[in-house]
Design a protein around this nucleic acid. Structure first.
Lengths: 202, 202, 202, 202
DNA sequence: CATGAATGAGACTTCATTCAT
DNA sequence: AATGAATGAAGTCTCATTCAT
């Protein structure tokens, strides 16, 4: 029984540290966020952080990993009931755009600290993005097979277009403080992506 | 004559420090790039960096500023002879995609350090991006006025779509090591942007 | 009990750092006393100094503050039983002259670093001296009211005379290495101050 | 002839550097006064300072030396016509008090930077003060021999009393910004010194 | 499990001094 | 004689991490 209590306590602290880290790092940047500050915000002693994580770096990586896990889980869950390629893309766009509202600190962090260095990105961040791209590519290919999407387009280029576009909108909203309506913006973005900007295709 | 030589020497060192900084920071990240390493790579003493720049931060800002200056200058020069909105967008896309080939270190740096912290971005980086967005928006509006582009689209959303898309392609290429043909890729991207991905608009 | 031990440890280190700082700075001067040297003499790591003090400056200020606190406390305590203005002045003179024997390093420091820069003095040191002057002035005024001291003299000038005189004797003793008997010297100084140097006022 | 011109130029620059150093050091303190700032204020290149002085330290020492030289010269000149011990002491007091008005920067410097460290004072500053004390002692002794001053007093103590008192008044005036009338203040100080503060010597 | 005092490597920056011109 | 660009040693301070309690 003790163990369970301890595990709960552990879990709670573990989570508190992660949350605190995301908050602090979003505010001050990774390299200006002392572990002591994260610990204080989490309500634990400095040393305690090292009971749950190997290093400061590990805290950041774990926080990002978990966020992406949640994101992909949400997509996977929804895809059970959303079948159409068009609708699936729209759903991804919406969740992506909503991410900024779910946890602003995390959104800031994803737009900034995840890009620590070429090495960090190459080894770590890219893995997460690759999964996003992969997911979209598959949907696009299915759409192409079904004749819904143009078959002369590279599914990779389309996927990067979509991710890049939405990522940039989130980024821009964060740094200008703009507020948007995730659903409406998703609709606009998808309109451009699906139909292009050329007038009167008569 | 002496003076000119001295000026050249000064300019040369100034430039060497900037180049070294871009290289080192691209490799290791800003916070893991000691000034001493930048100085060594530039072939000067540590203190010499501070003869030409106010601080380490100043070196990075200056390098980025100069890169953007060049970029916008190139666009402005070309716009004298390229008139059509469609062609102008294509040209921007192409130069943007080429940027990665002009100076890979600088491209890495733009994808990483320029987004280092929320504050840095809010105060500094955003200024450069805003100019990009502004340029594209103007072209889009002109295209809309001329009936070339759909008038029901927000020029802002279109601009963010375009920047985000291309930026993401550059980023992806950098971190995966993929090589692409700037002109061909620009054509593909613009095809998606202009015509959308929906099939058979019959 | 643990807590008390820890507090003692903390206090002990705090005190050790202060003592080391006073010693080192007295020997070498503030600007030629690296924190690393103070730490070494205190037997702690460099960084430890910053656990107890905000800055190198803070160490010096604290040391001086505490010294003056002790000084004024001693005066206040004694004034409970010493009532006569003449006797009170004599007591101040004596304690002032003894200060040099209590802690030579601190005496050196008061003669050097406390007057290191105009700014430092204006903002910090002057506060301590002002209190000295103020104390003496009050005694002098009381003596004037009681008819013991001449009423045609400015109490301010008298106070500065007294402080300046004794301070100079301490200073001179320190820098020449001269040894004096505090009580006897106090008596001589007060004789001059009280009676003047003019002969046979017949 | 050339030589003379050069010597003049040299002398002028030499003096300009000294003046600039006194000014800058009085404003910012010795250790916060870069040689480059002194050079700039003197209107010469950094390197030029080293044509006239061995080191930064040498500039400060020379400036102080010259000031004292002037001071003692003025005393010596006046003593030719001022013969009485009492009058001689009054004259010294007056010149000492005036020093603060002659060159405020230099006065500040004498009250601060001259006390760099125990070593500096022991080796350098004290020499100047010793001469002051010596001068006063001789006058006092002569006064004692002539029966003008009490013979039971140590001439050394009297000399320190006088120097300390006046030095403190100058110091206090500098750091509080107080303005005084040198002649009147000299009279007051000498009144205390000569007659003491005890009332009704009936 | 938890603590937090202590460590010490390492960062940025300043500046006295030199020396080629 | 004069310059001022360049040097590089040295200083203050931060902070990730450890470990005795």
């Amino acid at each position: 029984m003790k163990k369970t209590e301890e595990e709960l306590a552990a879990c709670e602290k573990y989570q508190r540290i992660l949350d605190a880290a995301v908050e602090v790092i979003a505010e001050r940047g990774y390299f200006k966020s002392p572990v002591s500050e994260i610990a204080k915000r989490a309500g634990v002693a400095d040393g305690t952080v090292y009971l749950y994580f190997k290093s400061k770096d590990d805290v950041l990586r774990t926080a990002i990993d978990r966020r992406f896990e949640t994101f992909y889980q949400q997509i996977a869950d929804a895809f059970v009931t959303i079948a159409g390629p068009r609708e699936q893309l729209e759903y991804i766009a919406q969740v992506h755009l909503e991410s900024y509202q779910v946890n602003r600190s995390m959104a800031v962090l994803l737009q900034t600290e995840m890009r620590q260095s070429a090495k960090f990105i190459a080894e770590f961040s890219h893995r997460h993005l690759a999964r996003y791209i992969q997911t979209v590519r598959e949907v696009v290919r299915r759409g192409q097979d079904m004749g819904i999407f143009r078959s002369d387009l590279s599914d990779g280029v389309v996927a990067h277009c979509m991710f890049g576009t939405i990522d940039e909108l989130v980024s821009s909203a964060i740094f200008t403080g703009r507020i948007y309506d995730a659903k409406a913006t998703a609709a606009q973005v998808m309109d451009v992506l699906l139909n292009g900007i050329t007038a009167t295709k008569a």
